[in-house]
Design a protein around this nucleic acid. Structure first.
Lengths: 232, 232
DNA sequence: TCGAATTGTGTAAATATAACACAATTTATT
DNA sequence: AATAAATTGTGTTATATTTACACAATTCGA
């Protein structure tokens, strides 16, 4: 079984960040641990890679266990591998982040994991190196969202331009000019006017758009040059 | 010792790409394997993570064994973890790339590993998923080099603007306008005129510049907006 | 009916990019 | 010594993009 006899086998974990957006703030789905180690403290959702399981399959499994969702958008951040990062036993952890529509997941599943949506800005300290993971994930999210249309993963299927702007303002924690934002978003030609308007408004009702999924797949580069470089 | 009793421990490898630049083409330091498995075929340089070794330390160790260099610039690409990727035994591999000055490494050390500089464009097929690793590394190098001044890692300490242009043309496999390139590079204010000129020229001798290391550290974002977005 | 809040669209100035021309330097050649 | 060929340094101009604004339209409640 062990064909590379002189090498050490090591525990391989996966830790995932799940981002959500409530219309105002970026949120993270965090675990209030009711298990050891570090019971009672906050952490990311994690799990171990199994012997006969592809890494990608494991990521999907862990995301499913937390949210009840399949085919979620996720991407790897990096692998954390300091010797003492998990005090229980040497464990390396492959960290990744996922983006979901905050209203679109299985609440029972999250409850079963003791998971809560926490404001990214007001999050508690996390165990191990999970704080560093969050910092790197946010950096990578900002980087990626400036160049690629991944922000839509956080919104409902139909959304308004002002909603999209609020999302980008939350991601980059900065105000954006309404008029320039609108022009730039529309210039990507990735938005389709549904003909409907947002009825949940007490003032002028904004147009509801949906993403042009085909262009979104084929022109994944359409967002290049989207956010000003200073924000990346 | 095994405190997480129900989980499987897995071999953790590191595979590294070492990029070099000979003045004309991007090169990769590849291994002609004189060991099993896949003896006689070409692969990336690799090694296993040891029980009491930080991931970053392991990367530096493997790079040192190959090049004799320390403190090389490197960054992680991603972790490859398909079940059958190594037919000998389940192994996940953390893949990373390094950038070195091709004239600046220990030839004996490379020879001891049976390593050769191979034109990126004319590289042979590699074992396992190493071809995919090279593709992803090249993508990430292009991505990063457009936004950050990492290309300099591939050049000698003193270099000319035409040399730098040839490097960027090799990275993006595209011709660039000499005059616009020069203006854009100089506008970053990261280049210091050494007062010397490149004597290895049979025509007009170009000015030798060196990188302003302090700005390079503090203004790591100076390159944002450097390469046109179409190239990323 | 009016005012407050919000949304959609427009415009002009500043900046950046792209596509060019031309002069200066260096060596080999005549 | 003059000249040609190759290369380098420095413009210049037209176009495109970005920024910083103004103004009109919609919606609802006072």
């Amino acid at each position: 079984m062990n064909k590379y006899p002189h090498s050490t086998r090591i525990l391989v974990a996966l830790d995932c960040l799940v981002f959500g957006f409530d219309g105002e703030e970026l949120k993270l789905l965090l675990i209030k641990r009711n298990f050891e180690p570090e019971k009672g403290k906050w952490s990311l959702m994690g799990g171990f890679l199994e012997a006969e399981e592809d890494l990608e399959v494991a990521a999907n499994r862990i995301l499913y266990d937390l949210t009840g969702l399949k085919d979620i958008y996720f991407e790897e951040i990096k692998t954390f591998g300091k010797v003492g990062r998990d005090p229980v036993e040497r464990t390396i952890s492959i960290c990744f982040f996922a983006l979901i529509n905050i209203h679109d997941h299985n609440q029972d599943q999250a409850k079963a994991q003791n998971a809560y949506w926490i404001d990214l800005k007001n999050r508690p300290g996390l165990i191990f190196d999970h704080n560093e993971m969050v910092n790197m994930a946010l950096e990578q999210l900002r980087y990626k969202a400036a160049l690629h249309p991944i922000g839509f993963e956080l919104l409902p299927e139909k959304f308004t331009i002002p909603q999209l702007q609020k999302l980008y303002e939350a991601i980059y924690d900065t105000p954006l000019d309404r008029r320039n934002f609108s022009r730039k978003i529309l210039s990507t030609k990735l938005l389709i006017d549904t003909g409907e308007k947002n009825q949940n408004s007490t003032t002028k009702k904004a147009i509801l758009y949906r993403l042009d999924k085909e262009k979104y797949q084929s022109q994944f580069n359409a967002f290049h040059n989207f956010m000003s470089d200073a924000m990346i």
